[in-house]
Design a protein around this nucleic acid. Structure first.
Lengths: 193, 193
DNA sequence: TTAAACTATGGTCAAATGACCTCTTTTCGC
DNA sequence: GCGAAAAGAGGTCATTTGACCATAGTTTAA
């Protein structure tokens, strides 16, 4: 049904083929253009999302219109707003595409059914959650520590391939610094070549 | 065995008395003085910790000796380093007391046994994990957004009671600003009374 | 294809912040 | 209770950062 997703799940190694088939069968594929929204602030997050291709971002919009990016989700990542999804309450964040993207969606009722029915799948999602917690901690640490330049260098080290795919202003927004500061840093690094 | 903990678990509402007893029986209580360490960077986190009384902090120490506080854990909170605990690898953070504290510890082997044996307890810890993810997202958001003063105001709004219990330098360390900046903000707010 | 929107860069200036220092007060541990 | 240590406030100065502006190049969408 969704061969690329099934290949991904096989590669994770913990789920037998019939289970993978069952999970895949409940997914609905969507194709999104660049800069298209998939969840707006205030809406309820009703789906788990797996990114087949492209790149999504999770962000907030402040009263003054400025945006803060919490997370980039490139291909082969899961994403959603956990607070909104778990409690089915309005979301405080938005999720949208940075590039044209293909995603798979599971409605919460279907996903819950899969979890209830397949113990190994619970184990699998638990691993995803652990990883998520770990990444969030890393994010907090790097956000707190060091100068703007250290944050940028850390970003480049952690996600070298994002540099070519994202506009600098989004990287600045992710790092919590102004675009001006970011271009200054890059300029200085070029000088030192 | 640990009446205060059992009262806490009862109040959470999802676990029957015999289960609570079983969980409580496997805990070991420790009494810690102020500024005592319970996990040092590089050690492996082998226990789940529940804070009966007092206040713990999770923090990192940089090469230059500066500290960044990830999390405060006052009474009736659970804490650990998830990355180190889950994988049993050396921790990158330290955990220690801010105040004299009493904690309960479950060794991972015991805690895993409880999870295997008691489905409702799995549900309970899953809720804790959800809440943890939510709090981490909030933390990232407030760290990214706004000026030092907005972060401080947010902190006061979120944790009004912490103000009286924590030295300002730790609040500054939590917010990722210098003590100087924090005292300046407080001074300015007093002027405006 | 062409106009409009977006992107990155640079200049300038003011404001925010941190580093380093001192001093006084408070708190802690014995 | 006492001595030592820590905490908080303030002063000064250099640096970093952001806001605002303009411009040139690029990409997008009609």
């Amino acid at each position: 049904m969704h061969p690329e997703f099934e290949t991904y799940l096989q590669a994770q190694g913990s789920l037998p083929p019939n289970v993978i088939q069952r999970i895949s069968d409940l997914a609905v594929q969507k194709t999104l253009r660049r800069n298209e929204s998939i969840l707006n602030t205030g809406e309820i997050c009703r789906h788990k999302i797996f990114v087949l291709s492209g790149m999504l971002r999770t962000f907030t919009t402040s009263a003054d219109g400025s945006e803060h990016i919490l997370l980039f989700s490139p291909e082969h990542n899961w994403t959603l707003d956990p607070a909104s999804y778990d409690q089915q309450v309005p979301s405080r964040v938005s999720i949208g595409t940075v590039e044209p993207s293909d995603v798979l969606c599971w409605h919460k009722s279907n996903f819950d059914a899969l979890l209830a029915e397949i113990p190994q799948f619970r184990g699998f999602t638990n691993k995803l959650i652990s990883r998520n917690i770990y990444l969030n901690r890393e994010r907090i640490l790097t956000t707190l520590s060091g100068t703007a330049e250290e944050k940028y260098d850390g970003f480049v080290r952690m996600f070298p391939n994002y540099l070519l795919r994202l506009p600098l202003r989004m990287i600045a927004s992710y790092l919590g610094i102004s675009l001006k500061t970011l271009t200054r840093i890059r300029h200085a690094q070029l000088q030192r070549h």
